[in-house]
Deep mutational scan, measured.
Amino acid sequence: VKVYLPNKQRTVVTVRDGMSVYDSLDKALKVRGLNQDCCVVYRLIKGRKTVTAWDTAIAPLDGEELIVE
């Protein structure tokens, strides 16, 4: 899953069964001094942002793009 992060940064996270968006992005956010409490995650669908819950399973999102703001 390709993830666009604040400050024009981006990362790619590996999809693993049983993991949530929260778990999958935890390290990427912490390395950048961010956490899930201060950010909102969106799914990018056909160029439009849709709010996605942090506890959403990451497996069904394989191949999609997320935006964290």
Results as ranks from 00 to 15, higher is better:
residue 21 V to C: 03
residue 7 N to G: 14
residue 55 D to I: 05
residue 19 M to P: 02
residue 32 R to I: 15
residue 12 V to R: 11
residue 50 T to E: 05
residue 27 K to Q: 06
residue 18 G to L: 01
residue 48 R to S: 07
residue 51 V to T: 07
residue 18 G to I: 01
residue 5 L to G: 00
residue 39 C to W: 02
residue 25 L to G: 03
residue 4 Y to L: 15
residue 36 Q to G: 06
residue 65 E to S: 10
residue 10 R to N: 14
residue 59 A to Y: 14
residue 14 T to Q: 14
residue 61 L to N: 06
residue 15 V to K: 02
residue 18 G to Y: 04
residue 53 A to I: 00
residue 42 Y to E: 00
residue 29 L to G: 01
residue 33 G to S: 05
residue 30 K to G: 06
residue 30 K to Y: 06
residue 60 P to R: 12
residue 54 W to P: 01
residue 12 V to Q: 09
residue 3 V to G: 00
residue 33 G to R: 03
residue 12 V to F: 08
residue 31 V to S: 15
residue 64 E to M: 11
residue 26 D to R: 14
residue 33 G to V: 04
residue 26 D to E: 14
residue 23 D to K: 11
residue 31 V to G: 11
residue 23 D to T: 11
residue 40 V to D: 00
residue 21 V to S: 02
residue 38 C to T: 13
residue 43 R to M: 00
residue 4 Y to D: 04
residue 14 T to Y: 06
residue 14 T to W: 11
residue 4 Y to F: 12
residue 64 E to T: 13
residue 23 D to C: 01
residue 16 R to N: 10
residue 24 S to L: 12
residue 69 E to S: 05
residue 7 N to E: 09
residue 34 L to V: 00
residue 30 K to H: 02
residue 11 T to H: 03
residue 32 R to M: 15
residue 46 K to N: 15
residue 30 K to E: 07
residue 58 I to D: 01
residue 54 W to F: 01
residue 2 K to A: 08
residue 21 V to H: 00
residue 35 N to A: 09
residue 59 A to P: 04
residue 40 V to G: 02
residue 63 G to Q: 05
residue 30 K to N: 05
residue 48 R to D: 08
residue 2 K to V: 10
residue 32 R to W: 09
residue 21 V to E: 04
residue 38 C to E: 15
residue 36 Q to C: 09
residue 36 Q to D: 04
residue 35 N to V: 10
residue 17 D to A: 14
residue 42 Y to N: 10
residue 40 V to M: 12
residue 42 Y to K: 05
residue 25 L to C: 06
residue 31 V to P: 06
residue 40 V to W: 02
residue 10 R to K: 13
residue 22 Y to E: 10
residue 27 K to R: 12
residue 25 L to E: 01
residue 58 I to P: 01
residue 28 A to R: 00
residue 9 Q to D: 14
residue 37 D to N: 09
residue 43 R to W: 01
residue 43 R to L: 00
residue 23 D to M: 07
residue 14 T to L: 09
residue 53 A to H: 11
residue 3 V to T: 00
residue 21 V to M: 09
residue 13 V to K: 00
residue 45 I to W: 11
residue 24 S to Y: 05
residue 48 R to Y: 07
residue 37 D to V: 03
residue 11 T to R: 03
residue 37 D to M: 05
residue 64 E to D: 05
residue 32 R to A: 15
residue 62 D to P: 11
residue 38 C to G: 14
residue 58 I to F: 13
residue 19 M to E: 13
residue 68 V to A: 06
residue 9 Q to L: 05
residue 40 V to C: 11
residue 45 I to F: 09
residue 52 T to A: 09
residue 42 Y to A: 00
residue 67 I to T: 08
residue 25 L to H: 00
residue 41 V to D: 02
residue 38 C to P: 03
residue 35 N to F: 05
residue 56 T to V: 08
residue 51 V to C: 06
residue 56 T to C: 11
residue 47 G to R: 02
residue 52 T to V: 15
residue 4 Y to W: 12
residue 69 E to N: 03
residue 20 S to C: 07
residue 45 I to P: 00
residue 55 D to R: 07
residue 62 D to Y: 07
residue 46 K to H: 08
residue 26 D to L: 10
residue 37 D to H: 11
residue 28 A to V: 15
residue 20 S to R: 06
residue 38 C to N: 15
residue 29 L to W: 04
residue 24 S to K: 01
residue 30 K to T: 10
residue 64 E to R: 03
residue 20 S to E: 01
residue 46 K to E: 15
residue 22 Y to C: 09
residue 6 P to H: 03
residue 18 G to T: 06
residue 39 C to E: 00
residue 69 E to Q: 04
residue 44 L to M: 15
residue 48 R to A: 10
residue 45 I to E: 08
residue 51 V to D: 03
residue 51 V to Q: 13
residue 46 K to M: 08
residue 49 K to M: 08
residue 43 R to A: 03
residue 46 K to L: 05
residue 64 E to F: 01
